[in-house]
C-alpha cells in the first residue's frame, strides 16, 4: 500500500518541484546549501504527506510545509546545526546569482533579501510567487494585518540597505 502512496507523492513532487527549488533559492546562499535544503524539504514533505488531505491544492500545501521547513532549518542553522549531505545526489545547479556575473543591482537586492529574517524572507518569496496577503497570511500562519505591516517594513528595509 505504502508504495502506491509513495508513487503518488513522487509524481506530485516531480510536477511541483519548482516550488521547492524557489524556496531554496531565497533561503540559501550557494548551491550546496540549496541541495541540502532541497533534500530536507523533500523529506519533510514526504513525512507530512499522510496528513495531506487534499482539501487544499498540493502546491498550496507544498508552500506551507516547504516554507515551514526552511524557516525551522534557518533557525537551526543559526545554532550551526547542519543537515546530512547526500553526496551521491548530483544534479546541476547554476543560478546566476550564485556566481558573480549577474547584474550588479540585482545581486545586491538578492543579498539584501537574504539578510531579512526567516519570516520576512517567506513573505518576499510568496510575494514573488504572486500570492495575495490572504494567501501569505494563511501559508505562514500570521494575520493578514501583520503580513501587510511586515511587507511595508521589508520595503523600507530593502530601500535603506540598498541606498546606504
Amino acid at each position: 500500500m505504502k508504495s502506491v502512496t509513495e508513487q503518488n507523492f513522487v509524481v506530485l513532487l516531480q510536477e511541483h518541484q519548482n516550488i521547492v527549488h524557489k524556496i531554496c533559492r531565497i533561503y540559501t546562499n550557494d548551491s550546496d546549501a540549496h541541495k541540502d535544503l532541497f533534500q530536507e524539504i523533500t523529506i519533510q514533505l514526504w513525512k507530512a504527506f499522510p496528513k495531506f488531505r487534499g482539501d487544499s491544492k498540493f502546491s498550496t500545501w507544498m508552500y506551507r510545509v516547504g516554507l515551514n521547513t526552511a524557516i525551522t532549518l534557518y533557525r537551526k542553522s543559526l545554532r550551526h546545526v547542519q543537515s546530512q549531505r547526500i553526496e551521491s545526489m548530483e544534479y546541476k545547479l547554476s543560478y546566476e546569482e550564485y556566481d558573480d556575473t549577474k547584474d550588479e543591482q540585482l545581486k545586491l537586492i538578492y543579498g539584501a533579501v537574504r539578510k531579512l529574517n526567516d519570516i520576512d524572507k517567506g513573505i518576499v518569496f510568496l510575494y514573488l510567487e504572486n500570492k495575495n496577503y490572504k494567501e501569505i497570511s494563511e501559508t505562514l500562519g500570521i494575520s493578514e494585518v501583520n503580513a501587510r505591516v511586515r511587507m511595508n517594513r521589508i520595503k523600507t528595509k530593502l530601500k535603506t540597505q540598498l541606498n546606504s
Binding site: 507523492f9 523533500t42 547526500i86 510575494y127
Partner: peptide, 24 residues
C-alpha cells in the same frame, strides 16, 4: 526582483522520479 524571478523560473533543475525516490 520580481521581474528577474519570473524570468528565471524556468531555470530550475528538474529532478526525475528516480532521483526524487532516492531522496526520500
Amino acid at each position: 526582483l520580481k521581474k528577474d524571478w519570473d524570468k528565471s523560473s524556468t531555470n530550475y533543475p528538474n529532478l526525475n522520479n528516480e532521483q526524487l525516490y532516492k531522496l526520500i
